[in-house]
Amino acid sequence: MAANNSTTSLWRSWRLQRRVIFALLMRETLTRFGRHNIGFLWMFAEPMMFTLGITALWSIMGAKHGSDLPITVFALSGYSSVLLWRNMPSRAISSIQPNLALMYHRNVKLIDIFIARLLLEAAGATMSFFLLSLIFIYIGWVDPPEDILKVIAAWALLAWFGMALAILLGALSEHYELVEKFWHPTAYLLFPLSGAGFLLEIVPEGPRNLLLYLPMLNCVEYLRDGYFGSLFTAHYSVSYVIACNSVLTLLSLAKLRQVSRTVVPK
């Protein structure tokens, strides 16, 4: 009986949380994109514009970044990845205070606010990557991925990394204003190191091993291995990324729990 009760209540909690996250998701979508012109299509139109711009720029400059790869697939995989992991923390930082009043609706928890925001961000980046891939494959600028499961796994790992990092930084930013100040320069400086603009095979072994401490770099290499792995030698460790993500997730949830005990809505 007791066991039965607890499954029921776990099931009910899950349904409740889904309901709350859906409500927040709708609210966030409307707030950010509104109903004007193309409305929520901006969710992926915006990242698509970024990626297209970078792809065009690199193609014109002939920026081969030290390899003979087709530039389109290189830019598409690289810049889409950056958008995925970098935008989530930016959306999460300093997002607690403006949303605190929502907590008067007792079922709404801080974690739900974060999850709704981050899902929206991840969905936008994913749709952008997916649609651009389809378009480029259709017009023949890009060959279909060699191993689509690897691409999906790499994308999922990168999204997980972005989410865990976002929740950790979002929760920390509630206690330390400096997080907000430091995130933008850090994200900017990490961009050239994140593998968006180069392949690890051109890097000498010494610095390469150092660079491989960056989880997002591992993910980008893994993603490209799935997309066009036969054209280069990929360097990455999936187990390292999983370990990193797990630790980040644990830290982020612990910090969020601590913050949620101390925040005081007006």
């Binding site: 409740l16 309901r19 709350v20 859906f22 409500a23 927040l24 709708m26 609210r27 409307l30 707030t31 509104g34 009043a101 929502l102 008067y104 609706h105 079922n107 709404v108 809505p265 007006k266």
Partner: peptide, 22 residues
């Protein structure tokens, strides 16, 4: 009224509350 999202319409705010409470 503190939880209202001011850029949304009254109806959208109503819909949000209704969804939260099922």
């Amino acid at each position: 009224g503190g939880a209202f999202q001011t850029s949304l319409t009254g109806l959208d705010n109503l819909r949000f509350i209704c969804r939260v409470y099922g």
